[in-house]
């Protein structure tokens, strides 16, 4: 799915990374607990979250993610958006709640991708 399709499905606003919205992403995850993201995610490219702090961006960067979707219309501060821009990650904001946002993307074919690493 193209990031531009996510924008359309969630009626989202682009906060940074406008030049990358035609990139393809293949899986997503939704969580407000960063350690869960770091534990269970393998190749997810999209993170949906209700948090808006700097660690959300750093967590996504650690996992080589391509796009962060802030749900429930929360507004991240400028420094959060700036860090995200520097990290080369697209940041979107949607008014939808977590459950609905995840459901809509799933329904349109964006799946959960890999599971917990067991090494």
């Amino acid at each position: 799915m193209k990031i531009s399709k996510i924008i359309e499905l969630l009626d989202a606003t682009v906060l940074c990374g406008e030049d990358k919205i035609e990139n393809e992403v293949h899986s997503a995850c939704g969580s407000d607990m960063m350690s869960d993201v770091l534990a269970y995610v393998k190749e997810q490219a999209v993170l949906l979250t209700g948090l808006v702090n700097l660690q959300v961006v750093r967590t996504a960067e650690m996992m080589d993610m391509k796009c962060i979707v802030i749900v429930r219309g929360k507004k991240p501060g400028n420094e959060v958006v700036e860090l995200c821009r520097e990290s080369g990650i697209v940041m979107l904001s949607t008014e939808e709640r977590m459950y609905v946002a995840c459901g809509r993307l799933y329904e349109n074919g964006l799946r959960g991708g890999g599971v917990k690493e067991n090494e």
Partner: peptide
């Protein structure tokens, strides 16, 4: 701490796994 997105008790197990 939880409201910041940490405190799931997953950090040390993750460190061990990775």
């Amino acid at each position: 701490i939880r409201s910041l997105g940490f405190g799931a008790g997953m950090g040390l197990p993750n460190m061990k796994r990775y």
